[in-house]
Computed example of a mutant assay.
Amino acid sequence: MLSAQARLHTEHASKYLQQLCKHFGHKVEVSFTADAGHATLPTGPAQMTANDSELWVEVTARDPEGLVVAKGIIDSHLKRFAFREGFESMPWEA
């Protein structure tokens, strides 16, 4: 499995984590609390944690194409949820 991680510095980390998980929960299996979440994305699992200053996300996939899709899923949803912060994309690292 391949993975990529990113941290978003924001005061709204818990809010975004919960929004992501609630939204994903309409289509895939999720579990979450205010500070940790897991979503079984079609490409592979996504792990999320939140604290007072940042949202951390790790996505996994079987191949490079799946990893691109997984990162795109997170980015596209956060772009809608964090638009007030001018969010464009997570600073992904392999």
Rank of each mutant, 00 (worst) to 15 (best):
M1D: 11
M1V: 15
L2D: 05
S3E: 15
S3Y: 14
S3N: 15
A4M: 02
A4K: 00
R7G: 11
L8K: 07
L8N: 09
L8S: 08
H9T: 10
T10G: 06
T10A: 11
T10M: 12
E11I: 09
E11D: 14
H12E: 15
H12T: 08
A13H: 05
A13E: 02
A13D: 03
A13V: 01
S14C: 07
S14L: 11
S14M: 06
S14G: 13
K15L: 09
K15S: 14
L17V: 11
Q18V: 11
Q19P: 00
Q19A: 12
Q19F: 10
L20N: 08
L20C: 07
L20W: 10
C21T: 08
K22L: 10
K22G: 13
K22P: 05
K22Q: 15
G25P: 07
H26L: 13
H26P: 05
K27T: 11
K27G: 09
K27N: 14
K27D: 12
V28E: 09
V28G: 01
E29L: 10
E29R: 02
V30Q: 09
S31G: 11
S31C: 01
S31L: 04
F32S: 05
T33H: 04
A34N: 10
A34T: 06
D35N: 13
D35R: 11
A36Q: 08
A36C: 09
G37T: 06
G37N: 06
T40Q: 12
T40Y: 05
L41F: 15
L41K: 05
P42M: 04
P42C: 05
T43W: 02
T43N: 04
G44W: 08
G44F: 07
P45M: 06
A46F: 09
Q47S: 15
T49Y: 08
A50W: 00
A50N: 05
A50S: 05
N51Q: 07
N51R: 06
D52W: 00
S53E: 14
S53Q: 13
E54M: 14
W56E: 07
V57N: 08
V59N: 01
V59K: 04
T60S: 12
T60F: 15
T60Q: 15
A61F: 12
A61E: 06
R62L: 14
D63R: 08
E65D: 13
E65S: 12
L67G: 03
V69R: 03
V69I: 12
A70W: 01
K71H: 01
G72E: 01
G72M: 03
I73L: 13
I74Q: 00
D75I: 00
S76Y: 02
K79F: 12
K79M: 10
R80Y: 03
R80G: 03
F81C: 00
F81N: 00
F81I: 01
A82P: 00
A82M: 03
F83C: 02
R84N: 10
E85R: 03
E85V: 00
G86I: 05
E88G: 04
E88A: 11
S89W: 02
M90K: 00
M90P: 01
W92I: 00
E93T: 09
E93C: 13
E93I: 11
E93Q: 12
A94D: 14
A94S: 13
